[in-house]
Design a protein around this nucleic acid. Structure first.
Length: 693
DNA sequence: GTCAAATGTCATTGG
DNA sequence: CCCCAATGACATTTG
């Protein structure tokens, strides 16, 4: 077993993979003796995680969606792609043309059936056209391909020969996998393709044959009957590279894709390959040959980066969270607040200067040191909390509301859509603003909408939004505009159809270049889907021999439509079908527009909510700054108060006791000294000073 | 086989 | 009354 594994791993398998990467499907398990485990278990060991990479289905299908980005196939796929890239890079260095030569080197054993594609006699036990009905089942690949391998044989060299033989024959019909073969079977078009292969009297010299189905030139060369090794100079070109690329696509020619799209796909494939060598040095992920797969990778990257970027940028709070919950309360007070409250009856200076909760004791601190202390203590975070507390005090906020507000400010998102709607809370006003804006926007956007289609509508929305101050709108506007084109306009431009069918709505594109692969991928899927859907009514129309196109049926104005109907003698059933087609077609477009509009509305509302949240946060920040400014003014006033009070002297030249007297501001700007005790209420005016600062 | 998303289709409404 | 767009609800397709 070990020797077998080593042999297979180091020689045959690598070669097989190489050939396989060129588009030749091969099922190695079918070449193993039946008592051996499947090949992948020989190589990798038993694992249920192993799944065979569907290179050929990837290449055989022009869209290439067979490999999911998360598939475990991808590792092997990329590794193989890398190897293939090396091979092709090598090819570019040595051969100026875009040609890959695959050399088949094998030793023919005497008496064995030395069969190459061109010289294989038609003695195979099962002919191609009479192969089994389950071509996809493992173990039948040989029979389907007309192989003469003997599965029960344990002669490895013979298996090797058979294997290479099969490879050789597969090379000749390059890129034709089992699925393709199945298609051919269904269409009964494969006789002329395979006929030469079955012809044992085929001349041994090189012959150029034209594939009857694809028109592809196939250069077939005989294997030397006598050679032990085929020299490189003698070895025929199995296929040029264009064939390698072309054949999987051309194998689909009988499908629904038209010739134009085939060529588009082919050219894109070639372009991607041309870029491959360059890009491979930069990013291993770009080793991918298959454009759709590469798009998948890009899609994932784009989606990840896009999402992360968006969430970070869109949801970054504009207001820094409060950092320290420790007591920010400066010891402002040098007086008992109750005394101040009782004595400063004329104005509410006490409330401004000494919030009641801050000073309950009458301890006197040095007035002159207070501002310095404050400046040290009152950093931004502390003042923010002060602001909240004052907000709670001055605006009637309950402590709960204040804490809720702080939670909102602390939250990273800044987006609390269902936030606490107290009548005083900003979110309440926000929601009302939001609803009013949305209603106005929708009315202005949608009421003027006529039959002109949806794109104009979207652009109107975009215009409106761009007039606003939303910094994020351009991204979404681009996005919405891309998603709202009329798809019928691009129905005949396969590579433009993505414009109308971008369903990656939740990903805000960062750059158009990154957008491109995503929408392209979607476009292909969409194209296929639309083709199929359009084909349904199309086929009904064809079946009923409707003499004009569905496009006309659907898109013609009523008058012209009626004229068209009048021009033909149509049966009742035909008329019914035509009306159905028209109704369905119009409704289909209407539904698409409706959904896009709905989506745009949602996106716009989302933008609006974000914008209002930013606005709210900015206003909250502004409010905090105002409160801080107010706090500074209070401190300044307090400082001046202390300074003035300390300079006052009574008749005896002694300073007034702050416990017994207090300064008071009057409405006309003067300051009076009043006793604090109740019996001095009648106001012994000790001093009067005009202070106009 | 199940599920979610996308899309198609039908019925209804209102302009 | 007819035409048509819009839309909710359900069906179908697809990955």
């Amino acid at each position: 077993m070990l020797s077998l594994k080593k042999y297979l791993t180091e020689g045959l398998i690598q070669f097989t993979i190489l050939l396989s990467l060129m588009g030749v499907r091969l099922d190695l398990d079918s070449y193993l003796p039946s008592h051996l485990p499947p090949l992948h278990e020989i190589i990798l060991g038993p694992t249920s995680a192993y799944t065979q990479t569907q290179f050929h289905s990837l290449r055989g299908t022009s869209d290439g969606y067979g490999v999911h980005p998360k598939s475990v196939d991808l590792d092997q796929f990329f590794t193989s792609r890398r190897l293939l890239g090396c091979v092709r890079a090598l090819d570019r260095l040595t051969v100026p043309s875009t040609e890959v030569d695959a050399w088949l080197v094998h030793r023919e054993t005497e008496g064995s059936v030395s069969q190459t594609g061109s010289s294989r006699p038609s003695d195979s036990p099962q002919d191609l056209t009479s192969s089994g009905s389950e071509p996809n089942r493992d173990g039948q690949g040989l029979e389907e391909l007309g192989a003469t391998a003997q599965p029960g044989s344990s002669d490895l060299s013979k298996e090797d020969i058979d294997l290479i033989d099969i490879l050789w024959r597969q090379d000749i019909d390059l890129g034709v996998g089992r699925e393709d073969f199945e298609n051919r079977q269904q269409q009964n078009e494969n006789e002329e393709v395979w006929e030469p292969l079955r012809d044992g009297a085929e001349p041994l010299e090189a012959a150029v044959q034209v594939d009857g189905e694809t028109g592809e030139s196939i250069r077939q060369f005989p294997a030397s009957d006598t050679s032990a090794l085929v020299d490189a100079e003698q070895c025929p070109v199995v296929s040029n590279r264009t064939d390698l690329l072309l054949s999987p696509l051309l194998a689909d020619m009988s499908g629904t894709l038209d010739l134009e799209q085939q060529w588009q796909d082919l050219m894109s494939l070639v372009d991607m390959q041309a870029m491959e060598v360059d890009s491979s040095a930069e990013d291993p992920l770009y080793l991918s040959l298959d454009p759709p797969l590469q798009q998948d990778v890009n899609l994932d990257q784009a989606s990840l980066s896009g999402c992360s970027h968006n969430t970070s940028s869109l949801f970054t709070p504009t207001l820094e969270p409060f950092s320290t919950p420790e007591s920010p309360v400066p010891q402002l007070s040098s007086h008992n607040s109750t005394d101040l409250n009782s004595t400063f009856g004329f104005t509410n200076l006490t409330g401004l200067l000494f919030p009641s909760q801050l000073n309950n004791t009458g301890n006197i601190t040095s007035p002159t040191t207070m501002p310095d202390t404050l400046s040290g203590l009152l950093d931004e975070a502390l003042l923010d909390e002060i602001s909240l507390m004052e907000l709670a005090l001055e605006e009637g906020f309950s402590q709960v509301q204040a804490s809720q507000l702080q939670e909102e400010l602390d939250s990273d998102s800044g987006l609390s859509l269902d936030s606490h709607h107290s009548p005083l809370s900003p979110s309440g006003s926000e929601s009302s603003t939001s609803s009013s804006c949305s209603s106005s926007s929708s009315s202005s956007s949608f009421s003027e909408e006529g039959a002109v289609g949806y794109s104009s509508d979207s652009e109107m929305i975009e215009l409106e939004e761009s007039e606003g101050a939303s910094g994020y709108q351009p991204q979404y506007s681009k996005f919405c505009r891309m998603s709202s084109q009329d798809p019928s306009r691009f129905r005949h431009l396969p590579f433009l159809e993505h414009v109308g069918h971008n369903h990656t709505y939740n990903m805000a594109p960062e750059e158009p270049e990154e957008m491109q692969p995503i929408v392209e991928k979607n476009s292909r899927r969409q194209a296929g889907f639309l083709d199929r859907q359009a084909g349904r009514d199309e086929q009904r129309a064809k079946a009923m021999k409707i003499p004009f196109t569905n496009d006309k049926i659907i898109n013609l104005p009523v008058e012209e439509f009626n004229d068209l109907l009048a021009k033909y003698q149509l049966s009742e059933a035909q008329l019914c079908l035509i009306r159905d087609i028209r109704r369905r077609g119009k409704n289909k477009m209407a539904a698409q527009n409706c959904r896009k509009r709905k989506l745009d509305t949602i996106l716009n509302l989302e933008q609006e909510v974000k914008h209002l949240n930013r606005e709210r946060n900015s206003q909250l920040r502004e409010k905090g700054e105002n409160l801080r400014s107010l706090q500074r003014m209070k401190q300044e006033v307090e400082h001046l108060y202390q300074e003035v009070f300390s300079q006052l002297r009574d008749q005896n030249g002694r300073p007034y006791s702050p416990q017994q007297y207090a300064l008071h501001y009057t409405s006309n700007g003067s300051v009076i000294l009043t006793p604090r005790n109740a019996d001095g209420q009648q106001g012994r005016r000790a001093e009067r000073k005009d202070r106009r600062k």
